[in-house]
Design a protein around this nucleic acid. Structure first.
Lengths: 114, 114
DNA sequence: GATACTGGTTACCTCAACGATACTTCGCTA
DNA sequence: TAGCGAAGTATCGTTGAGGTAACCAGTATC
Protein backbone atom coordinates (compact mmCIF):
# COMPACT_ATOMS: atom_id res chain seq x y z
CA UNK A 1 0.00 0.00 0.00
CA UNK A 2 0.83 3.57 -0.46
CA UNK A 3 2.70 5.33 -2.88
CA UNK A 4 -0.51 6.10 -4.67
CA UNK A 5 0.04 9.72 -5.44
CA UNK A 6 3.61 10.52 -4.61
CA UNK A 7 6.12 7.91 -5.66
CA UNK A 8 9.24 8.74 -3.75
CA UNK A 9 8.21 12.29 -3.10
CA UNK A 10 8.07 13.54 -6.67
CA UNK A 11 4.63 14.62 -5.59
CA UNK A 12 3.35 17.22 -8.00
CA UNK A 13 -0.11 16.83 -6.50
CA UNK A 14 -1.24 17.26 -2.95
CA UNK A 15 -4.61 17.16 -1.29
CA UNK A 16 -4.84 18.93 2.03
CA UNK A 17 -1.92 18.26 4.31
CA UNK A 18 0.83 15.81 3.61
CA UNK A 19 -1.07 12.78 4.89
CA UNK A 20 -4.68 13.75 4.12
CA UNK A 21 -5.00 11.84 0.86
CA UNK A 22 -3.56 8.70 2.41
CA UNK A 23 -5.95 8.91 5.33
CA UNK A 24 -8.85 9.22 2.93
CA UNK A 25 -7.70 6.15 1.03
CA UNK A 26 -7.16 4.32 4.28
CA UNK A 27 -10.74 5.00 5.32
CA UNK A 28 -12.19 4.26 1.91
CA UNK A 29 -13.50 0.82 2.88
CA UNK A 30 -15.05 1.78 6.17
CA UNK A 31 -14.27 3.18 9.61
CA UNK A 32 -10.91 2.52 11.18
CA UNK A 33 -9.29 3.04 14.53
CA UNK A 34 -6.43 5.36 15.21
CA UNK A 35 -3.90 2.59 15.44
CA UNK A 36 -5.27 0.93 12.30
CA UNK A 37 -4.59 4.11 10.37
CA UNK A 38 -1.08 4.23 11.73
CA UNK A 39 -0.15 0.85 10.31
CA UNK A 40 -0.18 1.60 6.59
CA UNK A 41 1.09 5.09 7.23
CA UNK A 42 3.88 3.75 9.35
CA UNK A 43 6.09 6.73 8.77
CA UNK A 44 3.71 9.09 10.51
CA UNK A 45 4.07 9.84 14.19
CA UNK A 46 1.04 9.95 16.47
CA UNK A 47 1.33 13.67 16.87
CA UNK A 48 1.16 14.36 13.18
CA UNK A 49 -1.61 11.85 12.64
CA UNK A 50 -3.61 13.49 15.40
CA UNK A 51 -3.05 16.88 13.80
CA UNK A 52 -4.16 15.56 10.44
CA UNK A 53 -7.27 13.87 11.80
CA UNK A 54 -8.24 16.90 13.87
CA UNK A 55 -7.92 19.14 10.83
CA UNK A 56 -9.97 16.73 8.75
CA UNK A 57 -12.61 16.55 11.44
CA UNK A 58 -12.73 20.33 11.61
CA UNK A 59 -13.22 20.47 7.85
CA UNK A 60 -16.02 17.90 7.95
CA UNK A 61 -14.06 15.23 6.09
CA UNK A 62 -14.17 12.62 8.83
CA UNK A 63 -16.16 11.94 11.96
CA UNK A 64 -14.54 10.88 15.21
CA UNK A 65 -16.40 8.50 17.49
CA UNK A 66 -14.98 7.61 20.90
CA UNK A 67 -16.39 4.58 22.72
CA UNK A 68 -16.28 4.62 26.52
CA UNK A 69 -14.72 1.19 26.75
CA UNK A 70 -11.75 -0.34 28.42
CA UNK A 71 -9.39 -0.19 26.67
CA UNK A 72 -10.64 2.92 24.90
CA UNK A 73 -11.62 2.77 21.27
CA UNK A 74 -11.88 5.58 18.75
CA UNK A 75 -13.13 5.21 15.25
CA UNK A 76 -12.71 7.54 12.33
CA UNK A 77 -15.03 7.44 9.36
CA UNK A 78 -15.26 9.35 6.12
CA UNK A 79 -18.16 11.73 5.69
CA UNK A 80 -19.83 12.23 2.34
CA UNK A 81 -17.62 15.28 1.92
CA UNK A 82 -14.51 13.29 2.66
CA UNK A 83 -15.67 10.60 0.29
CA UNK A 84 -16.06 13.18 -2.44
CA UNK A 85 -12.31 13.63 -2.36
CA UNK A 86 -11.90 10.11 -3.68
CA UNK A 87 -12.80 11.21 -7.20
CA UNK A 88 -10.14 13.86 -7.00
CA UNK A 89 -7.58 11.41 -5.69
CA UNK A 90 -8.45 9.05 -8.50
CA UNK A 91 -7.92 11.85 -10.99
CA UNK A 92 -4.53 12.51 -9.43
CA UNK A 93 -3.64 8.86 -9.59
CA UNK A 94 -4.72 8.62 -13.18
CA UNK A 95 -2.58 11.62 -14.04
CA UNK A 96 0.37 10.12 -12.22
CA UNK A 97 -0.03 6.83 -13.98
CA UNK A 98 -0.18 8.49 -17.38
CA UNK A 99 2.28 11.33 -17.00
CA UNK A 100 4.54 10.96 -14.01
CA UNK A 101 7.06 8.77 -15.87
CA UNK A 102 7.50 11.54 -18.43
CA UNK A 103 7.97 14.10 -15.68
CA UNK A 104 10.54 11.98 -13.90
CA UNK A 105 12.34 11.34 -17.13
CA UNK A 106 12.50 15.07 -17.86
CA UNK A 107 13.77 15.71 -14.38
CA UNK A 108 16.37 13.04 -14.70
CA UNK A 109 17.52 14.24 -18.11
CA UNK A 110 17.89 17.73 -16.73
CA UNK A 111 19.90 16.43 -13.82
CA UNK A 112 22.21 14.57 -16.16
CA UNK A 113 22.88 17.73 -18.15
CA UNK A 114 24.64 19.42 -15.26
CA UNK B 1 -8.40 36.37 -12.36
CA UNK B 2 -7.13 33.92 -9.85
CA UNK B 3 -8.60 32.40 -7.02
CA UNK B 4 -9.37 29.41 -9.12
CA UNK B 5 -8.29 26.68 -6.79
CA UNK B 6 -7.65 28.29 -3.47
CA UNK B 7 -10.23 30.85 -2.42
CA UNK B 8 -8.57 32.73 0.36
CA UNK B 9 -6.11 30.01 1.13
CA UNK B 10 -8.54 27.31 2.18
CA UNK B 11 -6.71 25.36 -0.47
CA UNK B 12 -7.27 21.67 0.13
CA UNK B 13 -5.70 20.96 -3.24
CA UNK B 14 -2.29 21.82 -4.51
CA UNK B 15 -0.43 21.04 -7.69
CA UNK B 16 3.32 21.31 -7.53
CA UNK B 17 4.56 24.36 -5.71
CA UNK B 18 2.40 27.15 -4.45
CA UNK B 19 2.24 28.98 -7.76
CA UNK B 20 2.52 26.13 -10.26
CA UNK B 21 -1.19 25.75 -10.97
CA UNK B 22 -1.59 29.47 -11.51
CA UNK B 23 1.32 29.55 -13.91
CA UNK B 24 -0.23 26.70 -15.87
CA UNK B 25 -3.52 28.56 -16.08
CA UNK B 26 -1.72 31.73 -17.03
CA UNK B 27 -0.02 29.96 -19.93
CA UNK B 28 -3.13 28.12 -21.01
CA UNK B 29 -3.84 30.42 -23.95
CA UNK B 30 -0.34 30.53 -25.34
CA UNK B 31 3.19 31.61 -24.53
CA UNK B 32 3.79 34.51 -22.20
CA UNK B 33 6.73 36.57 -21.08
CA UNK B 34 8.13 36.63 -17.60
CA UNK B 35 6.61 39.98 -16.79
CA UNK B 36 3.28 39.00 -18.30
CA UNK B 37 3.09 36.14 -15.88
CA UNK B 38 3.89 38.43 -13.00
CA UNK B 39 0.91 40.66 -13.64
CA UNK B 40 -1.93 38.32 -12.70
CA UNK B 41 0.18 36.75 -9.99
CA UNK B 42 1.01 40.12 -8.60
CA UNK B 43 1.72 38.79 -5.14
CA UNK B 44 4.68 36.75 -6.31
CA UNK B 45 8.19 38.18 -6.20
CA UNK B 46 10.53 37.70 -9.16
CA UNK B 47 12.72 35.38 -7.17
CA UNK B 48 9.90 33.00 -6.37
CA UNK B 49 8.52 33.15 -9.89
CA UNK B 50 11.95 32.31 -11.25
CA UNK B 51 12.21 29.38 -8.88
CA UNK B 52 8.80 28.14 -9.91
CA UNK B 53 9.50 28.46 -13.62
CA UNK B 54 12.90 26.81 -13.32
CA UNK B 55 11.37 23.88 -11.47
CA UNK B 56 8.64 23.58 -14.08
CA UNK B 57 11.18 23.70 -16.86
CA UNK B 58 13.22 21.01 -15.14
CA UNK B 59 10.13 18.83 -14.90
CA UNK B 60 9.28 19.32 -18.55
CA UNK B 61 6.12 21.32 -17.88
CA UNK B 62 7.20 24.49 -19.69
CA UNK B 63 9.78 25.50 -22.22
CA UNK B 64 11.85 28.64 -21.88
CA UNK B 65 12.86 30.51 -25.00
CA UNK B 66 15.17 33.50 -24.77
CA UNK B 67 15.39 35.86 -27.74
CA UNK B 68 18.66 37.72 -28.24
CA UNK B 69 16.99 41.08 -28.65
CA UNK B 70 17.28 44.48 -27.11
CA UNK B 71 15.58 44.69 -24.73
CA UNK B 72 15.76 40.98 -24.00
CA UNK B 73 12.68 38.84 -24.30
CA UNK B 74 11.96 35.47 -22.76
CA UNK B 75 8.89 33.41 -23.44
CA UNK B 76 7.48 30.54 -21.47
CA UNK B 77 5.18 28.03 -23.06
CA UNK B 78 3.39 24.94 -21.80
CA UNK B 79 4.57 21.60 -23.08
CA UNK B 80 2.13 18.77 -23.74
CA UNK B 81 3.00 17.48 -20.29
CA UNK B 82 2.27 20.82 -18.71
CA UNK B 83 -0.95 21.05 -20.64
CA UNK B 84 -1.98 17.66 -19.31
CA UNK B 85 -2.16 19.23 -15.86
CA UNK B 86 -5.09 21.33 -17.04
CA UNK B 87 -7.46 18.38 -16.74
CA UNK B 88 -6.31 17.89 -13.19
CA UNK B 89 -6.72 21.56 -12.39
CA UNK B 90 -10.19 21.45 -13.86
CA UNK B 91 -11.02 18.48 -11.65
CA UNK B 92 -9.79 20.44 -8.65
CA UNK B 93 -11.84 23.45 -9.67
CA UNK B 94 -14.91 21.31 -10.14
CA UNK B 95 -14.44 19.80 -6.69
CA UNK B 96 -13.98 23.23 -5.18
CA UNK B 97 -17.07 24.54 -6.86
CA UNK B 98 -19.16 21.61 -5.64
CA UNK B 99 -17.75 20.97 -2.22
CA UNK B 100 -15.64 23.81 -0.91
CA UNK B 101 -18.63 25.72 0.47
CA UNK B 102 -19.52 22.69 2.59
CA UNK B 103 -15.95 22.43 3.81
CA UNK B 104 -15.80 26.08 4.71
CA UNK B 105 -19.12 25.86 6.45
CA UNK B 106 -17.92 22.91 8.51
CA UNK B 107 -14.77 24.78 9.39
CA UNK B 108 -16.70 27.83 10.37
CA UNK B 109 -19.18 25.88 12.46
CA UNK B 110 -16.30 24.24 14.27
CA UNK B 111 -14.69 27.59 14.89
CA UNK B 112 -17.91 28.94 16.34
CA UNK B 113 -18.12 26.02 18.76
CA UNK B 114 -14.99 27.08 20.65
C1' DG C 1 5.56 -4.07 41.52
C1' DA C 2 6.43 -4.12 36.27
C1' DT C 3 4.79 -4.09 31.98
C1' DA C 4 1.69 -3.29 28.17
C1' DC C 5 -2.30 -1.59 25.59
C1' DT C 6 -5.06 2.47 23.89
C1' DG C 7 -5.19 7.16 22.10
C1' DG C 8 -3.32 10.54 22.64
C1' DT C 9 -0.36 15.26 24.70
C1' DT C 10 3.64 18.27 25.43
C1' DA C 11 7.99 20.40 24.54
C1' DC C 12 11.44 21.06 21.49
C1' DC C 13 13.86 21.24 16.95
C1' DT C 14 14.83 21.58 11.87
C1' DC C 15 14.64 22.72 7.40
C1' DA C 16 12.82 24.21 3.19
C1' DA C 17 9.58 27.37 1.19
C1' DC C 18 8.21 31.75 0.89
C1' DG C 19 8.84 36.68 1.05
C1' DA C 20 11.00 41.70 1.16
C1' DT C 21 14.36 44.58 -0.56
C1' DA C 22 17.93 45.81 -3.20
C1' DC C 23 21.09 45.25 -6.98
C1' DT C 24 22.73 43.78 -11.88
C1' DT C 25 23.48 43.75 -17.11
C1' DC C 26 22.79 45.31 -21.54
C1' DG C 27 22.05 48.30 -24.83
C1' DC C 28 18.75 52.38 -25.80
C1' DT C 29 17.09 56.98 -25.31
C1' DA C 30 16.53 61.81 -23.99
C1' DT D 1 24.82 61.30 -17.54
C1' DA D 2 20.99 59.84 -16.11
C1' DG D 3 17.49 56.91 -16.46
C1' DC D 4 14.59 52.99 -18.56
C1' DG D 5 13.03 48.34 -19.20
C1' DA D 6 13.60 43.40 -19.36
C1' DA D 7 14.71 39.42 -16.85
C1' DG D 8 16.42 38.14 -13.56
C1' DT D 9 20.32 37.63 -8.84
C1' DA D 10 21.78 38.29 -4.27
C1' DT D 11 21.06 38.59 0.48
C1' DC D 12 18.60 38.25 4.38
C1' DG D 13 14.70 37.19 7.29
C1' DT D 14 10.47 34.75 8.69
C1' DT D 15 7.32 31.11 9.25
C1' DG D 16 5.24 27.04 9.86
C1' DA D 17 4.61 22.24 8.57
C1' DG D 18 6.43 18.37 9.89
C1' DG D 19 9.52 15.38 12.74
C1' DT D 20 11.75 13.44 17.40
C1' DA D 21 11.36 12.06 21.93
C1' DA D 22 9.27 11.72 26.06
C1' DC D 23 5.30 11.54 28.82
C1' DC D 24 0.23 10.61 30.52
C1' DA D 25 -4.21 8.10 32.32
C1' DG D 26 -6.66 4.02 33.31
C1' DT D 27 -6.85 -0.82 33.49
C1' DA D 28 -5.31 -5.42 33.40
C1' DT D 29 -2.34 -8.87 33.18
C1' DC D 30 2.23 -11.13 34.39
Amino acid sequence: MFDPVCPSGAMPIQIGDKWTAMVVLCLEDGPRRFSEIRVPLRRVTPKVLTQTLRAMERDGLVTRTAYAEIPPRVEYELTALGRSLLTLIDAARAWSKDHLPALLEARHAHEASL
